[in-house]
Design a protein around this nucleic acid. Structure first.
Lengths: 224, 224
DNA sequence: ATTTATTTTTAGACAAGACTAAATTTAATT
DNA sequence: AATTAAATTTAGTCTTGTCTAAAAATAAAT
């Protein structure tokens, strides 16, 4: 009923791969069953089942009770899904007037479309973007991504300046907050003051003074 | 694990609805189990099962052994899927350099993406196209489609002219044949001669003379 | 009008992917 | 080191969507 290439990895399998991929970026150790379960909002027993299948398909390395690691093939496969996700996000924002807080759910669907030509052409159509609307890097066709050296706003010292290049938290609430305050990627800002008692900052942006909480400052990336 | 709106109709349910929708256009009687099975390349018993579910969901009317008919809601739902399919086809051809014989499989996947905003914006981005790359009409947001009065090339008389507006067979082989012969939508052609013994035609197109078989002439639509 | 053929439906089985509850293994504590 | 706690796996069940084989209903043909 469905074309063969759709069956290479099922929707579920792709979601597991992507979850493990994202978890590996922050953890550098074997990824635990529970961590995957939490990320996918499913149960540990379901993860345990799926892990066996993915292990048989040789996209992850798995020893009982030891957590999992992506194989090179698994990493490449996962990176390709992330590549698609982020390219679609660029498309939605640049061409279809989506705002950066609206793209996630749709990209979550579009990332599973199977067609090498589609992605190749979409990439060209968008002018080979290097980052998605949240500042996250887009893996290239081989799954490699060049990581921009970026710092959390909270790490800037007084009088230091930086350009907004990404967000750590990309929830709609946070993104809408940033919009409201006029903070968008590419904007330059300068730290005017750092408050010791609550770690809030006073920053200058667009010539205006703005006070931001520590929570904001630890979720916004800048390039010094 | 998946967003709620994805569950309104499953992938399978959507494919059944679409199949029935297409079959109703040609048949105007109740659609038989076997016809659906053939269209979806599945077994009659599977169709029989699914029919019950769709009937409970009130998208089709079903009486045992009597075939099925789409309800208004079912028709609207199916038309919406076809709308998405055809809009994506336009996108692929107009923006991503796909040829008209390459779009089907990808559009078959893209048509299941759930996002009203996505389709609304895509429609606008494409300039509200009325037909897909094969000349098939794109249903509007309410599922209505205005049917262009069109005739098969084979029905033209000697010395009559027409503009290519669509194909009946949209298989890759046929479309590639048309490309090779320089026959594309919008081209004007004139019937120079009709051969009685094999119903082949001699036509004029782009100032050149071309002989086309009856099979071609009964699969190409023109507007007189 | 019977018989035959075709279509459709039912019954029972299976795979994928999820779940609950119970068992097992590893980690943490006393 | 022994016990408790937490994490992981297994066992068994459920749903969706498919299938085969058999039964039932309709249509066709003698």
């Amino acid at each position: 009923m469905y074309p063969k290439f759709l069956r290479m990895f099922s929707l579920s399998e792709e979601n597991y791969l992507k979850a493990i991929y994202h978890l590996e970026i922050i953890s550098n150790k074997g990824i635990s069953t529970n961590a995957i379960a939490e990320k996918l909002e499913t149960k540990a027993s379901s993860v345990s089942d799926m892990i066996k299948k993915l292990s048989e398909k040789e996209v992850i390395i798995y020893k009982k009770y030891q957590g999992v690691t992506l194989t090179d093939f698994g990493k490449k496969t996962a990176a390709n899904i992330v590549r698609k996700h982020r390219l679609w996000e660029v498309f939605l924002v640049e061409k279809l007037n989506f705002s950066w807080d609206e793209v996630h759910d749709v990209a979550e669907q579009l990332e599973h479309i199977k067609s090498p030509k589609l992605i190749h052409e979409l990439d060209a159509f968008l002018g080979f973007p290097s980052h998605d609307p949240h500042g996250d890097p887009i893996p290239d066709n081989d799954g490699n991504l060049k990581v921009l050296e970026k710092s959390l706003l909270a790490t800037l010292s007084k009088n230091e300046s930086g350009v907004c290049v990404g967000v750590k938290d990309s929830s709609a609430e946070f993104l809408q907050y940033l919009d409201k305050k006029g903070i968008t990627l590419g904007k330059e800002l300068t730290v005017l003051e750092k408050e010791d008692f609550d770690d809030s900052l006073s920053i200058q942006i667009d010539g205006k003074k703005l006070s931001v909480s520590n929570k904001i400052a630890t979720n916004l990336y800048v390039k010094k």
